[in-house]
Every structure is written in structure tokens, then in C-alpha cells.
């Protein structure tokens, strides 16, 4: 089932048309079709090595497709929040310096102007980072670190926010925190205008199941729709290459790995 990108008269922000990308000779993603409309909140799920990040890079324009095309709406403003694991935490930058670096300077002198500092501090306040502007990026909690990079992206006033694994390696509380901030940004209730969001995640239950739209991805789009529509054993097995079961809890789908029985039996035999 490959279905509904909301197809109204609204011009989509990004359209993938039969996109294939490769590094070297072997294709990493093939024949990818989907689009993102203004205001959408889309999660791309799939196992590691499935090409999720490549899709993001193609969306951002840092990887060029070898076939097909990625069309972006004229004048589309994109901001990218990288995976926290890729950040060099020993780099000497303060919170304010990180947020400021995404802004081109208007004058030849690089010092931040009064107005810039006020604007940066406003964004930091909005994300609950008040008073941390002069801290080194390492002196923050995981959730705060994620929000610093969000603040940098927000300063560019994007139409579309792109995040790579925003909850990788964070604890449960931080995951909730990040999800709530993203929901606020998507609705426009964080003092910014509403923005579309595309993120990748491998966290099916903690993150993906909460989103309005999911794309199951493994080299190509396996399924595209609401969690209820796509979090089904058939699609999940085709996405992850392993059998999975879907239970329901509190009205939400919960994915559990199949085949745990045999493993449990082997382990208990060893214990005996």
C-alpha cells in the first residue's frame, strides 16, 4: 500500500520522483516516490543501512540522484538538524556561537550585533534554553543539546525542518521532551509559524507510532501512511526483513519482535 500524501491543491514542498541514488557503483536507494506537503509531520522508518539517511541527503540536496528528480518548491527554506552523535562535542563553541553560525553576516566584521544577540536569545528562550547561551555545548543535558541544534535550524526560519535520528541514544525523558518540542513547532504553538517536519528514526514504538504519517523504507518506499495503516506485520517484515507482531495498547500500535520464543528457550536451557 503506497498511499496518501495529502493530495489537495496545495503545492507540495518537496516531490521525489522515481529517485535513485548511489555511492560508487551500487545503488543505495532505488525508485523512491513520495512528497511532503506544507504542515506535514513525516517519519521515515527502516533498519540501519536501509538508505534512510541517503533519502534525507537527497531531500537536502547534498546527494544528487543518479535517476529521477527531487523537486523543491521555489524558494523553499530547509533546515537540517544532524544526528547528535555526529557532533564534535570537544569543539570550542558556546551555545550562542552554535546558533549564530547559521546566519550569514551582513557586515564584514564578524562580531554579533546587539540585535542578533537579542534574536538568538529569543529563540533560546522559546526552546527553554534561557540562561545557557554562554555555556559550552558539552555542559548541557542530552535534551538541551538537541534543542540547541533545533534553535540553530529555527533561526533560519525554515518551511521544512529535517532531522536525522533526533532520539538516537537519548533517554526516555529526553525523547518525550524532544517529541513535544517538535509537535509544538509543527503546530506553530512555539511562537513560530507552523512548519513541516521530516525525520528519520529506528524507534518504532517510542517515536514513530506517535507521528501522523510514516514511510517504511528499505532501499525504496515499502509503505506510506498513518501508523495504523503501515505498522502491520506484512510491511514491517518487508521493511526489517524479520517477522514482527503488532499489538495494540491504549489505542496505539505497539510493535514487538517475533521469534523471541526460541531465543528465550535457548537461554533458559543454558541457565538450567
Amino acid at each position: 500500500m503506497t498511499s496518501p500524501s495529502p493530495s489537495v491543491a496545495v503545492e507540495p514542498l518537496v516531490v521525489f520522483e522515481h529517485v535513485s541514488c548511489s555511492y560508487g557503483d551500487s545503488p543505495v536507494v532505488e525508485a523512491v516516490d513520495f512528497s511532503v506537503a506544507p504542515g506535514e509531520f513525516v517519519g521515515v522508518v527502516g533498519p540501519s543501512g536501509s538508505g534512510k539517511t541517503t533519502v534525507l541527503r537527497a531531500l537536502l540536496g547534498s546527494v544528487k540522484p543518479v535517476h529521477g528528480s527531487v523537486r523543491r518548491r521555489q524558494g523553499l527554506r530547509l533546515s537540517y538538524v544532524p544526528q547528535l552523535e555526529t557532533v564534535d562535542w570537544n569543539f570550542p563553541v558556546t551555545v550562542r556561537e552554535v546558533v549564530a553560525m547559521s546566519r550569514p553576516t551582513r557586515s564584514w566584521w564578524p562580531r554579533m550585533t546587539r540585535a542578533e544577540i537579542v534574536q538568538i536569545d529569543e529563540v533560546l528562550d522559546r526552546l527553554g534554553l534561557e540562561g545557557l547561551a554562554s555555556r559550552h555545548i558539552r555542559e548541557l543535558s542530552g535534551g538541551q543539546q538537541q534543542r540547541v541544534f533545533l534553535a540553530r535550524a529555527l533561526l533560519q526560519d525554515p518551511d521544512l525542518l529535517v532531522l536525522d535520528e533526533p532520539t538516537a541514544g537519548v533517554d526516555v525523558r529526553t525523547r518525550h521532551e524532544v517529541l513535544h518540542v517538535l509537535a509544538d513547532l509543527n503546530e506553530g504553538s512555539a511562537g513560530t509559524r507552523p512548519m513541516a517536519i521530516v525525520l528519520t528514526t529506528h524507534d518504532l514504538n517510542g517515536l514513530a507510532a506517535h507521528l501522523p504519517r510514516l514511510i517504511c523504507f528499505n532501499r525504496t518506499v515499502v509503505a506510506d501512511g498513518s501508523p495504523d495503516e503501515v505498522l502491520r506485520p506484512y510491511f514491517l517484515e518487508r521493511t526489517y526483513g524479520a517477522p514482527m507482531e503488532v499489538l495494540r495498547h491504549g489505542g496505539m500500535p505497539v510493535v514487538v519482535e517475533h521469534g523471541g520464543d526460541e531465543l528465550r528457550e535457548r537461554m533458559s536451557r543454558r541457565g538450567a
Binding site: L60, S62, L78, S79, Y80, D88, V93, V98, M101, S102
Partner: peptide, 13 residues
């Protein structure tokens, strides 16, 4: 600074 700290995002920006 941007391209030293974070080349990928700098390129996108």
C-alpha cells in the same frame, strides 16, 4: 567556523 564545526549542515545551509 560553520564548515569546520559542521561541514554537512554548513553545505546544506
Amino acid at each position: 567556523l560553520f564548515s569546520t564545526f559542521d561541514p554537512e549542515v554548513a553545505g546544506v545551509s
